[in-house]
Design a protein around this nucleic acid. Structure first.
Lengths: 344, 344
DNA sequence: CTTAGAGGGACAAGATATGACCCGGAGGGG
DNA sequence: CCCCTCCGGGTCATATCTTGTCCCTCTAAG
């Protein structure tokens, strides 16, 4: 199947640009229908005339229809869009990238979404969608799902397809609060996910970054202990990956102090652990939630992180070895591949 | 897989023409390498400049190389050509045509080669190649293969890949001689096939069209009887299909006389049997070889016939019900499909 | 009624593809 | 040996298609 694509690209490479162009039009239309030519052209940065030619063509193919309110997807177009994602996934070489990364870093499965959230922040929606679909597909009744916080996870949460069948899923936060915005704290995210999956949730009323003494005291609390224990034995652990410098700032940790106490230069962060490029622990911050040794025991740890700027951080965390499934974007994935190839 | 193609054709139909163009160039080069631009242009009926642009492109793709003697296939090009046939087979819709005909007429398998021998007689080579490959793939040791005559069968015979492992295959003619040219008589063809398969052959020294009295006398002959008996129980029977009027002429039979004695209008001929459009026997000519009732007992009867002009004849013979595998070309196959659809 | 945004028409400028013709050189046949 | 043919490559005018721009009328919402 992959062979197919590479052969077509070899003998008729021009189709890729064409496919990409027409697909982007169809997709933009599907998101904004009905929409006019000019607006479409503006959004896609094509000339108005180009859009017009293409729209005319797509109309002739019965994929689009247009009336006085603008252009919309025709029934055939909607059917096509469902399948087209797969084709483009192949044409963009994402399928081979997925298997490449999975083999190279030792993951069970990698999902790559086209684009780069650094360049086009709206792409985060696609990441969330992919992750959301994955979760709702994989979650079983009676499962315990643990989640961390972060903007990425927040996006994932609200993209999980709403399940009408009420499951007995229990969602627990794997972290305390991150201080600032409520919507991206693991507590809030756990609640949203639970709601969408039709399950229940527990909260963890603990600040994420605390001194060790206070931490020990808190851990004596029964309820907190129970919640943490749930997270430690979760059937599915969903977490984001952070760039150390940015994460430290968010948690109000002095970066220079962290650097000093670090054994190696931190490249990626997850669960309060700072990992060096080779995946070893460079530094830790005292944190509520599962410890590193707990993570390695879990058999479904899913990392979600995207954007070229996170490539290094992702690779560092992956190399720690506890992640089983990675959901990322093209920008990050290609950058990771570059890093890997540069190392040889 | 088929879905794939239809979707690509829907959203980027221009690739088909491109594919077809470049494929035809690659193919022509592969047959005639090294070959010059002008000769190539002449043969493919494209403008010389067009060929030049395309050849330049294909060179940039490392599929072709050129030196002072002309253009040749590059190593990558040779590899590609092996797979490209399959892709074009799909793009041309031949795969779906094959399954359509197989289901509609009740065959085990249909092979369709692109083109139409009526328009481009050189296409007969492709038919022969396909049939030849099929035979060499399917034939097993100790098999008895029976063959008829005709130009098509002659082409098939000389396209069978030469086998160096000497098999114990026995090839027998399923018919007597057809009078005229020696090369297309079943005797000659049986010899060629046997040689190519690395097997042995028997000959049938009997004129194909004889009076019934003489026929009966001949059948008393031991050797002849044995050969015929072998053909009747062949593991593989390979035969052509004729258009009645032409066949009658070739056999020096008076067409008007045949018409008079026929119960219905003969549409197709095979083994001396003239079949009407619905597959019933319209007329017979006394002939050496297996009878109709023998044919139905065989479990691998392969018909090879191509060209739009033979469409009706092919369908008539297929409907007689003894054919299991058909090898034909696009011209005939599409025409047969038209006939079938017109009947509804 | 006004107005913003819709589709569609028209046309010139620009990019691209194509046709036509020429050139020097390599190789095969006389 | 030479000639003659066929090779790739160069060049350029022309045909063809693509693209940018501007204008028109219509419709639905405010």
């Amino acid at each position: 199947m992959d062979n197919w694509v590479s052969m077509l690209k070899m003998i008729v490479p021009e189709i890729e640009a064409l496919l990409e162009k027409r697909y982007s039009i169809l997709k933009t239309v599907s998101y904004n229908q009905p929409i006019g030519r000019r607006l479409l052209a503006e959004r896609l940065v094509f000339g108005e005339r180009v859009i017009r030619s293409e729209v005319d063509f797509l109309k002739s193919q019965q994929l689009l229809i247009s009336d006085t309110t603008g252009v919309s997807l025709a029934p055939d177009g909607e059917i096509l869009m469902l399948q087209l994602d797969g084709i483009l996934h192949n044409f963009r070489g994402l399928e081979s990238l997925e298997t490449y990364l999975a083999e190279k870093v030792g993951l069970e499965k990698v999902y790559i979404v086209a684009g780069d959230v650094d360049k086009q922040s709206s792409n985060m929606r696609e990441i969330g969608k992919k992750a959301g679909e994955f979760i709702s597909k994989v979650v079983r009744d009676d499962w315990v799902v643990a989640v961390t916080g972060g903007t990425t996870m927040a996006e994932v949460a609200c993209r999980i397809p709403i399940s009408n069948s009420s499951q007995k899923v229990l969602v627990v936060p794997a972290r305390g609060g991150l201080g600032e915005v409520v919507e991206i704290q693991s507590n809030a995210i756990a609640a949203v996910i639970a709601e969408r999956l039709g399950g229940t949730y527990r909260l963890l009323y603990v600040p994420d970054y605390i001194s060790e003494e206070v931490l020990e005291n808190l851990l004596l609390d029964c309820k907190i202990q129970e919640t943490i224990s749930l997270a430690k034995n979760a059937n599915l652990l969903l977490h984001g990956i952070g760039v150390p410098k940015i994460m430290a700032a968010r948690r109000d940790i002095d970066w220079h102090m962290l650097l000093k106490q670090a054994k190696e230069l931190p490249a990626g962060e997850a669960f309060g652990y700072y990992f060096a490029d080779d995946g070893t622990v460079a530094a830790t911050t005292p944190t509520v939630g599962p410890k590193l040794e707990d993570l390695t025991k879990l058999n479904m740890v899913v990392a979600v992180a995207a954007g070229k700027s996170k490539a290094r951080a992702i690779l560092a965390v992956l190399r720690a070895g506890f992640v089983k499934v990675l959901i990322t974007d093209q920008g990050a994935a290609e950058s990771i591949k570059e890093i890997l190839e540069a190392e040889i």
